[in-house]
Structures are given as structure tokens and as C-alpha cells.
Amino acid sequence: MLRRLVFVVLLLFCGLATAQVWENDFDQAMKLAADQNKPLILVFAGSDWCAPCIRLEKEIWVNASFETYAKSNYVMYKADFPRKKSNRLAGHLQKKHASLAEKYNPKGYFPLVVILRDADRVLGTTTYKKMEVDSYIEHLNSFLR
């Protein structure tokens, strides 16, 4: 019994150790990206209604290879626009995400992945693509050249 408990706790710890780190505040994320000299990946998603957003989440963002790579190479921020009442964000986050959308996603594409070097320097944009994780990482990195 104790062995099982230790095994489960170890699995949970390993899962937490590799979990994708999404910053909670856009301004802090931009500051962190500048301080660490990393690009910021800003993702516009509809987590509970957008099928390509959900596929991007499952196939790329939560993949252990991507998570490991992203921790060392990017700062990540997700501007989510859920529709279900049970998933609604706090009012200040809704306003912040709407403001970000006005600036970086005025056409309202979902998902939209924006690679930023600073608040005024968009390196590139992309969306969901049916690719292996390594290919998607190469695709994201192509905007850095």
C-alpha cells in the first residue's frame, strides 16, 4: 500500500515538474520575457468551444517535449475566451484579453499564436497545424530568424 502511495505521489510530482508554465499576467510575462531575453508566445484560444484550439492544446502545448523545450526557450501567455458560463474568466482578465485581441488579433482568429519580442515587435503569427511536436517547434522558431 505504501509503495503504491509513494509511486502515485512520484508520478504526480513528475507531472507537475513538466507541466507547461503559462504566465498569469500579460505585463509580467512581457517583463519576464525581456529579463530572460526570450520571445513571448501569446496564444488566443477558445478553450471550451474552438476545436482547433483544443487540438493545439492536446497535441502541442501539453506534450512533454514541448513543455520541456518551452520552459527553456519561451515565455508563454494564453488569452483565453471561453464561452461556457462555468468557465468564464474574472472581469479584469476578460478586459485584458479583449484589449490584447484588439492589438494582436483584430480579425478574431482562433487559435492564433503570436510570437513577440516585445510589446511592439511581432515576429510572426501562426495557428493550429497538424504536425509533430518537433516540427511545430521548428515552425515557431522559424519566426525568430
Rank of each mutant, 00 (worst) to 15 (best):
D80A: 08
V62T: 13
I54L: 07
S65K: 15
W49M: 04
I41K: 06
P82V: 11
N37G: 01
K78S: 03
H139V: 03
G124M: 10
H97Y: 04
H139F: 01
P106H: 05
Y136S: 13
D48E: 08
N87M: 12
S86W: 01
C53A: 05
A64I: 13
A33L: 12
F26H: 10
L89I: 11
K95Y: 07
A98D: 00
N37C: 01
G124I: 07
R117Q: 14
P39Y: 10
K107Y: 06
R121A: 08
Q28G: 11
A17Y: 12
A17E: 15
N105L: 10
A34V: 11
D120H: 15
L123H: 11
R117E: 14
V122L: 04
H92K: 05
S65Y: 09
V75A: 07
E132S: 07
M30I: 13
V75K: 11
M1R: 13
A64N: 08
W22P: 15
H139I: 03
K130V: 00
V8L: 14
T68D: 15
L2N: 14
S86V: 14
S142M: 04
P106Y: 04
K58I: 00
D27E: 13
A64L: 09
N87V: 11
D25V: 02
E67S: 08
K129Y: 05
L100I: 09
L89H: 03
L2I: 14
I60P: 00
L93R: 01
S99C: 02
N24S: 13
C14G: 06
G108D: 04
F81E: 12
A33F: 06
N73V: 09
T125H: 06
M30Y: 03
A101I: 09
L144Q: 02
N105M: 08
I137F: 01
L123D: 04
D118F: 02
W22T: 09
R117C: 04
R4A: 15
G46Q: 14
M131Y: 11
Y74G: 02
C53V: 09
S72M: 12
A17M: 12
N63L: 02
N87C: 09
A17P: 12
A19E: 12
L56N: 03
A51G: 10
E23C: 02
L5R: 14
L11S: 13
G91W: 03
Y128T: 09
F7N: 06
R4M: 14
A101D: 01
C14A: 14
F7Y: 08
E57C: 15
I137V: 12
G108K: 01
N24V: 02
R55E: 01
L144P: 06
L16A: 13
Y136W: 06
L40H: 05
A90L: 13
A19L: 07
A79V: 08
T68W: 07
S65Q: 15
Y109E: 15
